[in-house]
Write a protein that binds this DNA or RNA. Sequence first.
DNA 1: TCCTTTCTCAACCTTTCGGTTGAAAAGGAC
DNA 2: GTCCTTTTCAACCGAAAGGTTGAGAAAGGA
Lengths: 121, 121
Amino acid sequence: MVADPLSQVFSALADPTRRDIVARLAVADATVGELAAPYDVTVQAVSKHLKVLEDAGLVSRSREAQRRPVHLEAEVFDLMTKWIERYRRQAEERYRRLDDVLRDMPDDVRPDNPSQEGSPP
Amino acid sequence: MVADPLSQVFSALADPTRRDIVARLAVADATVGELAAPYDVTVQAVSKHLKVLEDAGLVSRSREAQRRPVHLEAEVFDLMTKWIERYRRQAEERYRRLDDVLRDMPDDVRPDNPSQEGSPP
DNA sequence: TCCTTTCTCAACCTTTCGGTTGAAAAGGAC
DNA sequence: GTCCTTTTCAACCGAAAGGTTGAGAAAGGA
């Protein structure tokens, strides 16, 4: 149960119900009961979902009499976006370099390009 | 096995081995054997991981004799970043509005603010 | 042709996940 | 105090995840 933070966040958001909970918490804080209402599952199941989100650092819970208002902690999103952007940029950089190489390459050594196959008549 | 695209991408990246595979594919395409080499698991296990990544649209596999070079498809990242940014922005917008309300509120109706408690002597 | 390499498929096993029910903890309200 | 509400904890269940081994498909080279 001591998974790395990135795995926790990704797997927390892999569940559609939990993503929906996050979406609703982006609009306003809510209690467990309020959050559970729209779904066709027990309050206990939603309480478990909230524990997963809390362990991932995506939400925090305070206290207000018996109620436990849930609050979205949006900062954790940065963890993911940083990871994603890093590899997206890296992959794009690769394409850029590949384009450069192909452009600078003399025709007689350039590998076949499907989009050029069937030379014009 | 017919999960929605967003769930598939998030859960594909919830596994550290699969994230590592994506990281390495951002540098260069690779065969299944090459990808499996650094890990302490069988090639079959890595082949399964690649199937998960492929089903999520994160990689594609071509053919080259017996080898099946794997290629990163970085466009799918946009799906996630769009989802994340939407709710991050929404949450930030909420804070902005809350700040406005508190600023425009007369002191005698403004709710207690912990950071203001213990009025200066 | 037979052999080797590379990879996937199939069956199985163990652990985790998302759900249930039932009981108990934590706070008001009366 | 006794209720009632809200939430969590504990035990259980079925399905899916991630791993294994063993067999088979696909392609090239001897």
